[in-house]
């Protein structure tokens, strides 16, 4: 009986009752797929709840089952990759799930990373944006061990200021009112 196996799994890992109730309210097929998934990754309560939240929200938005998401190509590939340990798999799968859960945000974040790569900055100059793009600011860090190095890095940054890629980062951060809109 699937419910008993779920309860046994949850009890062994001290799952919160609320989490278990949510799991048991899923369709039997989803319960089973999720148990197999949790088992393979040895998910504890917190990781499991994070996965469940996003899986449910994607399923609700896209009108599909949790099982359909978990049987997606990337999930299957990561899960069966013998080169990845449990923690690597967990990290890759969370990233993939985040990409599915926040498709437009992920697309902009990737767009910004791409623009930063196009600037071909020296590794001593780091450009980063905040998680979730909140605040809309680009942070620039320079690390120099001498005055001369700092001068070279400042000149490098000055060169980057003229690049379209850098200007486009700010366009991506501030939202586009027209053109390729973000809205659904």
């Amino acid at each position: 009986m699937i419910a008993q196996r779920i309860l046994a799994y949850g009890s062994a890992r001290e799952f919160h009752k609320e989490t278990l109730d949510r799991w048991l309210q899923l369709s039997e097929a989803d319960q089973e797929t999720l148990l197999e998934f949790a088992d393979r990754l040895r998910l504890g309560g917190n990781h499991f709840r994070d996965f469940l939240d996003w899986l449910e929200e994607i399923a609700l938005r896209d009108g599909i089952s949790l099982g359909e998401i978990l049987k997606g190509e990337t999930f299957l590939r990561v899960l069966s990759d013998p080169r990845l340990g449990r923690n690597d798999k967990l990290k890759c799968l969370k990233e993939e799930l985040r990409r599915l859960r926040f498709p437009r945000l992920s697309q902009i974040e990737e767009g910004i990373r791409q623009k930063i790569r196009e600037l071909k900055l020296k590794p001593q100059i780091q450009m980063t944006v905040p998680a979730g793009l909140e605040g809309g600011a680009l942070t620039i860090q320079m690390r120099a061990t001498s005055y001369e190095e700092l001068r070279r890095l400042a000149a490098e940054l000055h060169r980057a200021l003229e690049e379209d890629s850098l200007k486009e980062i700010f366009v991506l951060l501030s939202g586009k009112e027209s053109g390729a809109g973000l809205s659904a």
Partner: peptide, 22 residues
């Protein structure tokens, strides 16, 4: 429940900034 909301520094979740600015 399924909007693209992220947690802000004030503890509230909102649509991510470029989206809501648009």
């Amino acid at each position: 429940l399924s909007g693209e909301q992220v947690l802000g520094p004030d503890g509230k979740m909102r649509y991510f900034q470029p989206l809501r600015v648009e």
